Simulated assay, not measured.
Amino acid sequence: MRSFRQVDVFSAEPLLGNPVAVVHDADGLDDEEMAAFARWTNLSETTFLLTPTDPGADYRLRIWTPTGELPFAGHPTLGSAHAWLEAGGVAAGDPADEGVVQECGAGLVRVRRGEGGRLAFAAPPLVRSGPVDDADLTRICRALRIDRGDVVDAAWVDNGPGWVAVLLRDAAAVLAVRPDDAAFDGLDIGVVGLWEPGESDADVEVRAFVPEMGIGEDPVTGSLNAGVAQWLAGSRLPSSYVAAQGTAMRRRGRVHVTTADDGTIWVGGDTRTTISGTLDL
């Protein structure tokens, strides 16, 4: 029997964030067992906490969607860190830092307690960035069922999962998107639009479409928000801001982005355990 937690991420309110299934003490499970359990939970991500192989890490994390494994993902990182700490995990580093180090497919990721006690991860480096060419932009517009003229800007913001993002004229345009899931052709697309001051408690509305991962739209997405922050923070967005996500799915995710003095972008949010128990795999 192994301990299990399901953690809601990016919302302080029950059932309004993005849940992640976390399996503790997962050493000994093979790839097929992990993949089968991820398919069974049918959440956007299921994670497995293992003994680290890097001496600089506090734990190792493997992240699975219903269709395969990811090298990195944001809400599973925060939810898994929450579960590890709640289960009594103690970081090996400086206690004053109040942080942990996660080992995953993308390397070592720092997680710390930020403003208001929220967990936040340091945005990993982008593996692909820069402008989107005309052919890919045509594919993106087809998948989103929007016109090229609706796109204010576009960029690759990929930190592992494959993200490409488009900026639309405003948040209302983001909420109006009705994608064609059959037309994504392997793309993982983020859509971003700014709120006018006073319209929302957030600065920007974000949506994430990943139909080929078997989940359609992701409720709240840390990795996408990290990539968007590396693209837009300090230019079209403030260096520190709040992103709303999940509105179109009747969720209320809030992603808190902070740019530190050293330029590190921290992506944080509230975390809370909604289910805990044991499982037999």
Results as ranks from 00 to 15, higher is better:
residue 34 M to D: 00
residue 34 M to F: 01
residue 35 A to D: 08
residue 35 A to K: 13
residue 35 A to C: 02
residue 37 F to Q: 02
residue 37 F to L: 14
residue 38 A to Y: 11
residue 38 A to V: 01
residue 39 R to W: 04
residue 40 W to Y: 15
residue 40 W to V: 12
residue 41 T to E: 03
residue 41 T to L: 10
residue 42 N to V: 03
residue 42 N to R: 14
residue 43 L to F: 11
residue 43 L to S: 07
residue 45 E to N: 12
residue 45 E to P: 07
residue 46 T to S: 15
residue 46 T to D: 06
residue 46 T to I: 05
residue 48 F to N: 10
residue 48 F to T: 11
residue 48 F to P: 12
residue 52 P to C: 13
residue 53 T to K: 14
residue 54 D to A: 13
residue 54 D to G: 10
residue 55 P to H: 11
residue 59 Y to E: 03
residue 61 L to C: 09
residue 63 I to L: 12
residue 63 I to D: 04
residue 65 T to D: 09
residue 66 P to I: 10
residue 67 T to V: 15
residue 68 G to R: 05
residue 69 E to D: 07
residue 72 F to M: 12
residue 72 F to D: 04
residue 74 G to P: 07
residue 74 G to S: 08
residue 75 H to L: 00
residue 75 H to R: 01
residue 77 T to F: 07
residue 78 L to T: 07
residue 78 L to K: 03
residue 79 G to K: 03
residue 82 H to G: 09
residue 82 H to C: 15
residue 84 W to G: 07
residue 85 L to S: 00
residue 86 E to C: 02
residue 86 E to N: 11
residue 88 G to C: 04
residue 88 G to P: 06
residue 88 G to T: 00
residue 92 A to M: 14
residue 93 G to D: 01
residue 93 G to V: 01
residue 94 D to Q: 05
residue 96 A to P: 00
residue 96 A to L: 13
residue 97 D to N: 11
residue 98 E to P: 02
residue 98 E to H: 15
residue 99 G to V: 11
residue 100 V to K: 13
residue 101 V to A: 01
residue 104 C to L: 13
residue 105 G to T: 01
residue 105 G to S: 04
residue 106 A to G: 13
residue 106 A to I: 13
residue 106 A to T: 09
residue 107 G to I: 07
residue 108 L to W: 13
residue 108 L to Y: 13
residue 109 V to M: 06
residue 111 V to T: 05
residue 111 V to M: 12
residue 112 R to I: 11
residue 112 R to C: 12
residue 113 R to I: 07
residue 113 R to V: 04
residue 114 G to F: 10
residue 114 G to E: 07
residue 114 G to S: 02
residue 115 E to T: 14
residue 115 E to F: 02
residue 116 G to C: 05
residue 116 G to D: 08
